[in-house]
Design a protein around this nucleic acid. Sequence first.
DNA 1: TGCTGCACTGCAATCGATTACATAAAGCTT
DNA 2: AAGCTTTATGTAATCGATTGCAGTGCAGCA
Lengths: 345, 345
Amino acid sequence: MQLTMESKAPKITDVARLAGVSTATVSRALSKPETVAESTRNTVLAAAEKTGYRVNLSARNLRRQRTGAIVVLVPNIGNPFFSEILAGIETALSEADINMLVVDTRQAHMKPQLVLEYLHATRADGIIALDGSLPDAILSVASSGSGAPPIIFACEWTPKGEFSSVRANNTRGGALAISHLAGLGHRTIGMITGPDDNVLTHDRSRGALKALAAESLVFNPLHRFSGDFSLDAGARAAQAWLQLDQRPSAVFCQSDQMAFGFISELALNDVSVPDDVSVVGFDDIAIAKRFIPALTTLRQPRKKIGMSAARMLINHIQTNTSPAVETTILEVELIVRGSTKAFAG
Amino acid sequence: MQLTMESKAPKITDVARLAGVSTATVSRALSKPETVAESTRNTVLAAAEKTGYRVNLSARNLRRQRTGAIVVLVPNIGNPFFSEILAGIETALSEADINMLVVDTRQAHMKPQLVLEYLHATRADGIIALDGSLPDAILSVASSGSGAPPIIFACEWTPKGEFSSVRANNTRGGALAISHLAGLGHRTIGMITGPDDNVLTHDRSRGALKALAAESLVFNPLHRFSGDFSLDAGARAAQAWLQLDQRPSAVFCQSDQMAFGFISELALNDVSVPDDVSVVGFDDIAIAKRFIPALTTLRQPRKKIGMSAARMLINHIQTNTSPAVETTILEVELIVRGSTKAFAG
DNA sequence: TGCTGCACTGCAATCGATTACATAAAGCTT
DNA sequence: AAGCTTTATGTAATCGATTGCAGTGCAGCA
């Protein structure tokens, strides 16, 4: 005569009892169905259904020595640029029944300790880093191999140490931006870059400079504005641009956000894009096609980058292969919109 | 004479052996330091340090009957609107040493099964839902109380069932938008809403209508465009607006994204904001102040919403209180920028 | 001195599922 | 029909940390 007020979550023994088999059989029926006779399997499945059984993940993970989760290190969750990459990662992970832990590394540079926690295998089965500038302390642990889970870089990467990565063809993107502008007749082209020590900055700039050379154009160092991919950086660059005696007739912004900041600040000073200056962005975030003017930019396959990185990681985890370093480079696409037009000088 | 190629991760017994104490003491020294004599504690800490010990979370969670993680149900991770809320949640969680699992509920409406998985206590210690329109199947499980972890709604909420929530004062926001426009002399004000069955739509509209009444203005149902908070919905509303014989001189868009879509589509048709029509948004996402024109909008304290929801949930979890329903409403702020100006009719 | 209480530590059960190994039954081979 | 596989299931050890309970030793007190 027992009132079951708060019936506890059913466990495997409950299912086993109801089905009249051992817990081993239940476990097998659920995770390796083909190893169990069909009739038994059906009995077990029915019992599991009836009790509402759900496997206890802590127990499973403890036994299997896995965590069932990977962590994604994001430089700044608040930045919409990353959200679609996260979406891609999540898509791939959910297929493999792996959870995604999201960690913001912004303060990580203050206290690497905090992030180091995640590098231990007890926290996560693997790591996807969207932040190429992790503290050295972290990288050295990650590459030491002793018990640290596999790590894969997406979008950004790090030149220090050998890690797998998935990224866009940034160099080609830089080149495409420049040849588009040059093709429109622009001879004086400026550039707003990311942080000077950033790998994306480096590759995009390299591609841009190569394309300038190919067009026999010279790049004036005064026309290089160094930013940090943010809206405000673009606005600051606009201020600098306004001060110039000789203004470039076109500017390649290494992120859409900087392009928006740039265009917006120019607009406040009655300089019009594209009439007075043409602007190319990079990323093709959602708002780009609705900005005024709509932004010519380089589309990065962000969702695909996320998915590829996740699949690569899942593969590492499941096969438990030693992390053979592989680099996947996905193509970018030039999207021409209203922010660029032929030079009318 | 053993070569330790791949020394396994140290466990509590290793620390105990090195420190010359029992595992119980190690455990206590690490998690309840005050219950252990100082000298012992130092020995243990030194041993832990030396071995590089990290607690195995699966084991701890199994024993403690917790998961150490909460899940956040996001309608669409790809939507930048949510990223700052996530950032707020993450901030609060990391203080409490709890992990954040992010799950996209987009397909959830197709297969509620998938999300139901997360409602079992073995997956997460609690849930924050940013999606007010979860399938009924999910809600009923959540409110059943039997073993389901506590759930808290943030931003959105659901009228079905009693759940705690943290949200902005949407009604007041709607009212502020209208009185701002009315104060500028606009007498014919249109509105682009979210989905018809959405709670945000409902509250913002209610506030707006109340304010219209207070200003003795009548609302023409033809001036109501129903959208879904997206850029494209705004653009579609613009098309509809263009078809009108009697165009409102001002439009209240219930999200910034829709405002951008609206303004952008109007611009393509040579209608200028704010010269031809004033526009107010809602949310104040980052790009709002850099749009052209800069957008007048209602700022939601997104980060604060995230933090509050997380703290509320942490409190539920740690005190293990029965989920007493509490609703926190945070104030919105009208940010006046360039997209609205006095009616010059 | 003998007793009580307190501070500290250890023993061992426990959380729930997985899986190596053992066993049993059935099928196959010659 | 004996022996050998193959298939299906059960037994029990195991993953690593936590914690209720019990024990030890020492201080305080009458």
